[in-house]
């Protein structure tokens, strides 16, 4: 099956939308409210295209591809309509990219750039107060384009049912519960809303000012908390040797979703309370020693105890918080070096 987009014949599969087909073939159609995990909601009107034989402009995200249809994504009418939509969004809010946390990962910024929008007024005083009451998340209604992605994220994707639209028309605003500050709401700070927000309207509080998107290195890893094993992307400032923020990777088992611990509890690695040197107890007090001293001392005491009391006088507890490699090394050490099967892990607690 084939359809025509901008004069090119492109293949498609049943069930694909015009937007899917265009994206698959590298044809640019801007979107704001669409996201792979959200699907079409036809709110932002940016994916409009001309389809031969239909009246007006159609939203590519919600029109199914059909055999033989002819789509145009680049006509003057389409471009003007898109530009007007984005300009209205920019005029309406307070989009100050220099100060914005989302600079570099903002979909509104990207579409404005793609559509060649050079000028728009940034009012000096934002009209609405931002909600920074909660521990982890900042909501800035002045940067909100009311695309509804956070609403779907909160209600349908993670089912936490906190965010909702209030009012209607141009007064529409996204609020927590009954328009209470986020800290007083039923929000559990999972952060799915900020992961799916296309602008700087919902951002991480703790990462503010700590590094631009393009400066941070992305490292794929697994969350260190419960047994679900959520896949995460660590956004790392290599020079400062610091994890700046964490986002969810859209692969199994979590498909991008995280909880408050997985997304926000990461600074323990850089805590000044970390142990940084081996310690040996001397006269009842722990004193810092070199690795060689600590290892030699431990090996000597282990040998003594083994000679005197035998291998089964040892007990080894591997960590269920650490890696498989570390657990295997503990297991091998107890069996191959000491010679005991007294090895266990904290599976029982």
């Amino acid at each position: 099956m084939e359809l025509t987009i901008d004069g090119r014949n492109v293949p498609f599969r049943a069930g694909q939308t015009v937007l899917d087909v265009a994206r698959e073939n590298g044809i640019y159609i801007p979107t704001l409210c669409w996201h792979p995990r959200i699907g079409p909601s036809s709110r932002c009107r940016l994916c409009i295209v001309e389809i031969e034989g239909t009246r007006g402009l159609q939203t590519a995200c919600s029109v199914l591809a059909g055999s033989g249809i002819t789509v145009r994504t680049d006509t003057e009418i389409v471009k003007t309509a898109r530009r007007m939509t984005v300009e209205n969004l920019l005029y309406d809010g307070h989009h100050d990219c220099i100060a914005c946390e989302a600079n570099g990962r903002c979909e509104l910024q990207d579409v404005a750039y793609r559509l060649g929008i050079r000028e728009y007024p940034v009012v000096s005083e934002p009209a609405q107060l931002l909600d920074d009451s909660s521990a982890m998340i900042v909501m800035d209604p002045n940067k909100c384009i009311v695309c509804g992605r956070c609403i779907i994220a909160c209600n349908e994707i993670v089912g936490n049912d906190v965010l909702t639209f209030s009012q209607r028309g141009y007064r529409t605003k996204i609020v927590c519960d009954t328009a209470v500050p986020m800290a007083e709401s039923s929000c559990v700070q999972c952060g799915e809303c900020l992961q799916l927000c296309p602008t700087g309207a919902i951002t991480e509080k703790k990462s503010a000012g700590k590094g631009r998107e393009w400066e941070l290195e992305k490292v794929n890893s697994t969350c260190p908390y419960c047994g679900v094993g959520c896949q995460v992307i660590l956004h790392v400032d290599r020079a400062a040797n610091r994890i700046v923020r964490i986002s969810g990777r859209e692969v199994p088992p979590n498909d991008g979703m995280l909880c408050v611990k997985g997304r926000f509890a990461y600074e323990f690695t850089e805590s000044p309370k970390r142990l940084t040197k081996p310690l040996i107890k001397k006269d009842g007090k722990h004193v810092e020693v070199s690795w060689d001293e600590a290892l030699d001392y431990t090996a000597r005491r282990f040998k003594e105890i083994k000679e005197k009391h035998g291998a089964d006088a040892f007990g080894f507890i591997a960590s269920s918080r650490s890696t498989n490699e570390n657990a295997y090394a503990t297991m091998k050490f107890s069996r191959a070096v000491i010679g005991t099967n007294n090895v266990d892990n904290c599976a029982r607690t």
């Binding site: 697994t222 960590s319 007294n342 090895v343 892990n345």
Partner: peptide, 20 residues
């Protein structure tokens, strides 16, 4: 639903008294 991030793994790795 296992409680800790790698409690499954510690068992898989044989950090148990009766298995490698």
């Amino acid at each position: 639903l296992r409680g800790q991030n790698n409690v499954q793994g510690s068992c898989d790795m044989g950090a148990l008294p009766n298995v490698f």
